[in-house]
């Protein structure tokens, strides 16, 4: 990692580019032209300009001082967990709370170092199962169910 090519610089550059793109989009998207205070992009533009300015300052600060990040101990572990968490939140509605939660619990427990298969399976079935039983069937505040049955 050099002083100019590192994680911090990279993240700040992305923040800067995102803000610039969003700012540009306020001109390309069609908005009704109704004068300053009435315009829907009046306030967002102020915020985006501040965002761009601040990320420039932060970028310069980082380039001057170049502090190091705390290293990630288990990169693979982390990557698996992040992928699992995003997939979980994405598919929860489609496949129901129970199935997705059980699958996520297995991954999460393994990532955090649990190796006993019995514990993993029991946890993955009992915890989401209890929540589904409580909310769907006792409180009648249903969580999403799977396409296969309306019980879970």
């Amino acid at each position: 990692m050099s002083r100019f090519v590192n994680e911090r610089v990279f993240v700040l550059l992305i923040l800067l580019l995102v803000a610039a793109a969003l700012y540009a989009s306020t001109f390309t998207q069609s908005f009704s032209d109704v004068g300053n205070a009435h315009s829907p992009v009046f306030f967002p533009r102020i915020i985006l300009v501040l965002w761009i300015g601040l990320s420039l300052i932060a970028l310069i600060q980082t380039l001057i001082s170049a502090p190091a990040n705390t290293p990630i101990v288990g990169l693979l572990r982390l990557a698996i967990l992040i992928a699992a968490a995003v997939a979980y939140t994405m598919f929860l509605n489609q496949y129901g709370f129970f199935l997705t939660s059980a699958a996520f619990a297995v991954v999460c427990l393994v990532v955090f170092g649990v190796r006993n298969p019995i514990i993993i399976v029991v946890y993955a079935v009992v915890v989401p199962g209890a929540l589904v039983a409580l909310f769907n069937h006792i409180l009648k505040m249903p969580l999403p169910t799977s396409p296969f049955t309306f019980y879970f």
Binding site: A85, S101, C108, G113, L131, F135, L143
Partner: peptide, 13 residues
């Protein structure tokens, strides 16, 4: 491990 898993499930719920 148990705590972190439970946190994610509860947050989703």
């Amino acid at each position: 491990a148990y705590m972190m898993t439970a946190i994610v499930l509860l947050c989703a719920l």
